[in-house]
Nucleic acid binder design. Structure first.
Length: 920
RNA sequence: GGGCGGGUAGCUCAGUGGUAGAGCGCUGGCUUUACACGCCGGACGUCGCAGGUUCGACCCCUGUCCCGCCCA
């Protein structure tokens, strides 16, 4: 085995081994009666390429699945990809643009063919990339949301909801994306806050007489669609306007002055509001209240239509300028001022969303939301971290109907047909050939497709075969966990809950695990433009600084982004490997909303992998030539260090198991990390050296057995988190006779069943650790070279401690490079200076010692004074507490006792330190 | 406007009603045959601010100031 672990080859090799061995496959064998564990992957976009968000998801999900699989569950992790309506259409349109074509040149049918062709060639690359992370998905079950069986499920869902009256068509004000030329759901509109805009004032002249009213607007162009001006009914300033009309300056229209207490805030602006029912949600509602005409002034691409009069054909922002100018020319402009406002932008295209009146398909949400609320209320579904439940409830309790039609070409067609001869709309599972109303055959299908999230909402059961009653559906639904980002709690999670409850009559999953968003180390969102995107594959395989920069430039990073990149990662990344990346992602608390990924941290876990590798290298070296093999049963050694390390191991396993079950993967991984590094390596392996070299056959044998068992067990516990390296090592560990061929299918170590917690061993070993620690401190502080042995005269009145220290003498002498001399006469240590030349002293609980011939008096005085100060400070706190009668009376007995013990220990320590200082 | 989360060591973050933790960074030493991607030491925090509850609060409550997110 080489001195350094190199992940690259190893990871690829073992992944292939697992996949070809069929270990990822869930079983549908009717004879298989194991309990099931199912997790449906949040399907990445078909256009997607692996980013840290995916890496994070994949790691968490893979850990959950591998853990359950090792616990004996028939585990199914369903992989898949989403057709991602707009995103995909845009990618292919961009490709066409390079050929000088638009989708309209091709026509709908040819365009969709083209998208499929693109999908076959370059779509779904991300599934290959997920494998690089070690994802143990059941790949042959991969689903694509446009697969024929998915199409069938979508149709079934649509038709059923329509039959139930939960899907309907309506004309209302919707969010229009003029760039993508499609409607958007409310969720797909983002509000950009605190945008500086201009509040423009202008006057409408009264139709009779020469008065005027001044209105304010941030969108002057919409005045072309004004059909009223509104005032507050109680506003005395405008009483004279009641029942009057104003004249539109550009189009031949009389506009009524209406009274509306709801729309108008008399305190705001002039107290007069222009009303554009066709292009503003509030005005739309006002229009409905007053029966106003709704005049749409825009074409679907955001240019003005024929209702714009002379402004027809202008793009909406050009029209704004033109209207302002023209109003000024007519002497109607009344000034403008800066105004902070909120702009609605399209989630996808980023363009400013235009409210437009349009006929669309909607899902009635209230009836679907009610059971979804209840499922979380009554705990059928648990959301973690639990704070998110509130957000979930708030959204569902205030839910609006969901606009599901989209004016795209790529997506699930809406199974509705319109008749040329009558008004009937035919909605059908099969392609309709005749009108369901009049029987006429002159029908055409709805041009629109469904919102991508409509098909995603069915994911947990559509992937298992619904609406067919398949064995998979029977066996694996409901799934267990839904792990995803909180950013799609509404988009996806809530909708799956509603759909699952509605169509399956059962929740789609029982736990929702929401993780934070991965950001760069400054906490800023990763973006191509900012140049701060860390590609998981670069972390796994390594990349030079130049490669990172070249890549960022190609992705369109700004100069400042390149600068950041150059400053932050001048040397690029080493090939840290998937396991190191996984451990890093796991180490962040899932409670946090932000995972500010730090390269240094990844490096730290790469080092951990190397540490594990070398510890194993040592263990395997020691086991070579011995007949000792790792046993499934925990050995029962006699030597202290062996008992201690097993006790610590099983406690670490207990924390790890609890963490894995409670979705505290940070705690689980942390417990194993610290066990391996701080206890197994730093203490046990060091202690094992003299033991294995002792020549005492019994000690050698039990130490080998402990070493083998502890290593093999911790490897299994780490496997869900670091699958590749644990397999690489595990394969080499000598094991019991019928060990399985892969760690992946071995049993996850159970702390509860095998618990070997040995409190006595832990207490005793702590005495050893304290002794060694103190000796090392003295050596370090007094610059005693390692080569120079130290003689340590020690004493304790505690028989138990004395026995431990005597028994562990050779261990301590090796670890601290010292010679221990028990000093029977305690008085000699009380006045160390008189009995030992130039002695440094140390005081541990119940044990004190003098190390002669080492001190630098000045340094020793500093050190002792430092210690003394600390002790006095602590003692002050404890004594104050004990001096408080209500503490002694009211605090729990155990707490008071502990304080008393602390106090006496501190007093002793103080006394010893003072004595040492005085005798210097 | 409503809601949520956060403000703990230089940085990134854990954490508990009973004398503050990790990793990185900093610092002193070490060619100790598992590992320098290492080993052994060391320094570093009045836990945003102000009140309150409590024998005792970084942790609970109230108010307040910043930062971020979501919804309207």
């Amino acid at each position: 085995m080489p001195k350094q672990y190199s992940p690259t080859d190893s990871e690829a090799r073992w992944y292939e081994f697992w996949e070809t061995s069929g270990y990822f496959a869930a079983s549908e064998d009717p004879e298989d009666h194991r309990p099931t564990y199912t997790l449906a992957i949040p399907p990445p976009n078909v256009t997607g390429s692996l980013h840290m968000g995916h890496a994070c998801r994949t790691t968490f999900e893979d850990v959950l699945c591998r853990h359950k699989r090792m616990q004996g569950y028939n585990t199914l992790w369903v992989p898949g990809i989403d057709h991602a309506g707009i995103a995909t259409q845009v990618v292919v349109e961009r490709q066409l643009k390079k050929e000088g074509l638009t989708r309209h040149d091709l026509g709908r049918e040819k365009f969709i063919e083209r998208v499929w062709q693109w999908k076959e060639e370059s779509g779904g690359r991300i599934l290959q990339q997920l494998r690089k992370m070690g994802a143990s998905c059941d790949w042959p079950r991969t689903k694509f949301t446009m697969d024929p069986d998915m199409v069938r499920a979508v149709r079934e869902a649509f038709v059923q909801l329509h039959e139930e009256g939960l899907i309907y068509r309506d004309t209302r004000l919707v969010n229009w994306d003029v760039e993508s030329r499609t409607v958007l759901s409310d969720l797909e509109v983002e509000q950009e806050e605190n945008v500086e805009g201009t509040m423009f004032d202008f006057a409408y002249r009264l139709a009779d007489g020469d008065g005027e009213v001044v209105v304010s607007t941030t969108r002057p162009e919409t005045m072309l669609g004004d059909t009223a001006v509104a005032i507050h009914p109680d506003d005395e300033r405008y009483r004279h306007l009641h029942g009057k009309y104003v004249r539109h300056p550009f189009v031949d229209r009389m506009i009524p002055v209406i009274l509306d207490a709801e729309l108008v805030d008399p305190e705001f602006g002039t107290g007069v509001v222009k009303v554009t029912p066709a292009h503003d949600p509030n005005d739309f509602a006002t229009g409905k209240r007053h029966g106003l005409e709704e005049i749409n002034i825009f074409n679907l691409d955001g240019t003005l239509n024929e209702n714009g009069g002379t402004f027809q054909g202008l793009e909406r922002f050009e029209a704004r300028k033109a209207v302002e100018n023209e109003l000024a020319n007519l002497g109607l402009a009344r000034g403008s001022k800066k105004h902070m406002m909120t702009l609605p932008r399209s989630h996808r295209s980023g363009t400013i969303v235009e409210p437009m009146i349009s006929t669309q398909w909607f899902v009635k949400m209230k009836p679907l939301a009610a059971p979804a609320i209840k499922a979380v209320e009554d705990g059928t579904i648990q959301i973690l971290p639990p704070e998110w439940s509130k957000t979930y409830f708030h959204w569902l309790r205030n839910i609006q109907d969901w606009c599901i039609s989209r004016q795209l070409w790529w997506g699930h067609p809406i199974p509705a047909w319109y008749c040329d001869d009558c008004d009937h709309v035919t909605v059908s599972r099969e392609d309709a050939t005749a009108c369901g109303g009049c029987g006429g055959t002159s029908i055409r299908q709805d041009d629109d497709v469904l919102d991508t999230w409509f098909s995603s909402g069915l994911w947990p059961f559509s992937t298992l075969g619904w609406p067919e009653k398949t064995l998979a559906l029977e066996r694996f639904y409901p799934t267990a966990d839904m792990e995803t980002g909180y950013d799609i709690l509404f988009f996806w999670v809530a909708r799956m809950v509603m759909m699952g409850l509605h169509f399956m009559g059962e929740v789609p999953f029982t736990r929702v695990l929401l993780a934070g968003l991965v950001t760069d180390e400054r906490g800023e969102k990763m973006s191509k433009v900012k140049g701060n995107v860390v590609d998981p594959l670069d972390v796994i395989y390594g990349a030079t600084g130049e490669e990172l920069i070249a890549k960022a430039e190609q992705a369109g990073a700004k100069k400042s982004g390149i600068k950041y990149l150059r400053a932050t990662y001048p040397d690029g990344f080493a090939a840290y490997g998937a396991d190191a990346l996984r451990m890093t992602l796991l180490s962040y608390s899932p409670q946090s909303r932000r995972i500010a990924l730090s390269m240094k941290r990844i490096e730290g876990y790469r080092n951990f992998a190397n540490k594990l590798w070398n510890a194993s290298r040592y263990a395997l070296m020691r086991l070579t030539g011995s007949s000792t093999k790792a046993s499934q049963e925990c050995p029962q050694p006699n030597a202290l260090a062996n008992r201690w390390v097993l006790s610590r191991l099983y406690q670490a396993l207990d924390v790890a198991s609890t963490g894995l079950d409670a979705y505290r993967l940070d705690e689980a991984s942390g417990a194993l990390y610290h066990f391996v590094w701080d206890e197994f390596c730093d203490w046990f392996l060091e202690v094992s050296k003299p033991a294995l070299d002792s020549g005492d056959p019994a000690l050698v044998q039990e130490t080998e057995a402990t070493l083998a068992h502890a290593l093999e067990t911790v490897l299994r516990a780490l496997h869900p988190m670091m699958p590749h390296i644990t397999e690489e090592i595990w394969q080499r560990v000598p094991k019991w006779a019928d060990a399985p061929p892969s760690i992946m299918i071995s049993r996850f170590p159970s702390a509860l069943v095998d618990a070997k917690v040995d409190r006595q061993a832990e207490r005793d070993f702590e005495v050893v650790q304290a002794f060694v620690g103190s000796a090392r401190t003295i050596r370090a502080e007094h610059d005693v070279p390692k080569s120079e042995p130290m003689k340590i005269h020690w004493h304790t009145d505690d028989e138990g401690k004395r026995a431990v220290l005597e028994a562990e003498r050779s261990t301590i002498e090796t670890l601290a490079r010292c010679e221990m001399c028990f000093e029977a006469d305690a008085a000699k240590l009380d006045d160390a200076a008189a009995h030992f030349d130039n002695a440094a002293v140390f005081v541990n609980p119940g044990v004190r010692a003098a190390v002669p011939g080492v001190i630098d008096t000045e340094k020793e005085r500093d050190r002792l004074q430092r210690d003394l100060k600390k002790v006095e400070k602590e003692l002050g706190v404890v004594e104050k507490k004990l001096g408080n009668p209500s503490f002694v009376e009211r605090a729990p007995e155990a707490v008071v006792d502990k304080s008393k013990r602390d106090a006496s220990e501190l007093r002793e320590k103080r006394q010893r330190l003072e004595a040492a200082l005085n005798s210097l």
